[in-house]
Write a protein that binds this DNA or RNA. Structure first.
Lengths: 340, 340
DNA sequence: ACGCATCGTCGATACGCATCGATAAATCGA
DNA sequence: TCGATTTATCGATGCGTATCGACGATGCGT
């Protein structure tokens, strides 16, 4: 492997000059710049990351703490991971995986060993055990998810409250008077994942404004649980029933249960699910969706942490950013009556 | 951040002694070892990764190249990623994410900058464009998947041929004379992903031995495609129909299509799918499965690369490891007649 | 023509650790 | 008791880069 010294020698300049050509932190004449760049090309020189980190005290690596809980929708986690990694590259950073198995000590490790300049935590829970550690780390950390007490933390998430409002407003406008939310798995709810509560608060607020009733029923992947929830909803509903399934894992099961009951989405029942546009279009009946915009959340998380890393002001920061959700009509919901 | 010099000072020894305590590469008296370890505790010292990498020429980081193709079953990709990351920690290594978007230049980058000591490539295709680059990199690389020409490469994968054989043998023993494979998505097949061919070769070999017929039909996530495949299969089948759905994305759709046709798995049709044991049990009718053992493949991939890294003999290696698959009867297949 | 600022480059040093050779201390045999 | 080993520790050096101070060369105004 060639070093910057080799490049310097080949170009007939000092090693420091090579460094300045690369960083641009001092003016370099066009002539020597050319010589150096040619030498870099010919030697296929690439700076050594370890040495760079040692000298500059920056690794240009971001730690990404990923959850791996069977209850979660792994496909959507994967979308976060992928977009985060690609976005980080745009900022000339790399992503180091930190699995949740390592817990809080894992965070201390990667930061303490200075493998990472900062962290992104996914799937932050309402009362996450890692928060005290996060606050004590002297590096930028961005949380995806809003804990109960976000003081001193930098958080970003989809605006679940807005999502809840949009769903209910939309179904109310379509004429539904009772709207059932088939929610997340009990495991997720018990974990006090904050977004569940935020979504509910949104639905309830909108329900009050619109004068409709909202039922909150248990969801999950268990067909029986969902079937029970659906039957309860149907029993309580007057008029055309409406369902909201904000969890990706729920909607497949829900669709089948409704099918069993002889209900066709868009005809004698309304369904709003949560899926990417492409996936929604692929459904037998194109699914009206509330888009929680995981890609946008991911991109912003990376931008935030890179900005913090650049700012260099490593004092504790605090911010809270909510990404607006988007509701999209397809064929699984009733059309609102004209003029309303 | 304390350095090893700080530790040395606190313990009243030389910095090199601290280093030897940590590495164990020279004998240290019990007394000074104790002093040093106490100092490490009190200062919460953690060695600086950059400096360590610079001095030792080892980063203890493995690059993991992940695919992100909508056609793939993201949930299972995620299982690979998670198990790989956790296993790497057992060998005291970390995982750096390299997205496929970076392509071959990305591999050169992470290796050239010496961010990584080695690479694991997932979802290697039959004629992968990255193979020439992989061969030219002077670091250990483990491929998950078997390319057409595996010479000079280290590969590991599930034994898809065995999987195909097991499925067909099993269904033949249960009395089926025509067996239909609802395969992968056309996009996957066209990509010449080698495991498709290996699976087919296994089914065909077993079919010949058992004297049964195997139909290969297109799969995917598109309901219509699968419905067409199912109807074609039913038309060609004499006796009780049997289906094999080796792709995780296919089986959900398949189940619904069969349901629509009034066919109940385990009663008037046999179905073998591919899913983790937990997921298989959760199905309405517990699914008989061919387990491709992604976790075991992941663990072995990490072990192989860590062994190579330790061996230090960075000359080109070559090996090919196939992980045996496991077929498990649950309720979605017919029981074989007694005595056979 | 002379001092002065500006520009472009160089040399030296620090970053934190691993490792090698050397040395002092302890152990042993005769 | 003295040299020959072995054992435990130290000091010095190198890894490859970033960065600071210094310095010669150039251009400017007067």
């Amino acid at each position: 492997m060639p070093t910057s010294k080799d490049v310097a020698q080949a170009a007939g300049v000092a090693q420091s000059t090579v460094s300045y050509v690369l960083s641009g932190k001092r003016p370099i004449s066009e002539k020597t710049r050319k010589k150096v760049e040619d030498a870099i090309q010919q030697l296929t020189y690439q700076p050594n990351a370890g040495a760079r980190a040692l000298a500059s005290r920056k690794t240009r690596v971001i730690g990404l703490v990923i959850p791996f809980i069977p209850e979660l929708h792994m496909a959507s986690i994967m979308e976060f991971v992928s977009v985060i990694a690609n976005t980080a590259r745009l900022y000339d950073h790399d992503i180091l995986l930190v699995t949740e198995d390592e817990g809080a000590p894992g965070l201390k490790r990667v930061v303490g060993q200075q493998i990472c300049d900062g962290l992104i935590l996914m799937q932050v829970e309402g009362d996450d055990e890692r928060l005290p550690v996060v606050r004590s780390l002297n590096v930028p950390v961005v949380l995806i998810g809003i804990p109960h007490d976000p003081s001193g933390l930098v958080c970003i998430d989809a605006d679940f409250e807005m999502a809840g409002e949009q769903c209910v407003q939309d179904l109310a406008a379509a004429g539904h008077s009772v709207i059932s939310v088939i929610g997340w798995q009990p495991e997720v709810v018990e974990r006090h994942v904050n977004y569940v509560e935020r979504f509910m608060s949104g639905t309830d607020k909108a329900a009050q404004d619109a004068g409709v009733r909202v039922l909150h029923l248990p969801g999950g992947t268990d067909r029986d649980v969902i079937a029970t929830s659906v039957d309860k909803a149907l029993a309580e509903t007057t008029g055309v029933p409406a369902f909201i399934a904000p969890d990706g894992t729920v909607q497949d099961v829900l669709r089948r249960v409704l099918n069993n009951r002889g209900l066709t989405p868009g005809v004698d029942v309304s369904v709003i699910g949560s899926a990417s546009p492409t996936l929604a279009e692929l459904q037998p009946i194109p699914l009206s969706t509330i888009d929680l915009r995981p890609a946008e959340v991911s991109r912003r998380a990376v931008k935030i942490i890179c900005d913090l890393l650049e700012a260099e002001n490593h004092g504790p920061h605090e911010s809270l950013e909510l990404v607006p959700t988007v509701i999209t009509h397809r064929s699984s919901t009733l059309r609102p009556p004209h003029g309303s």
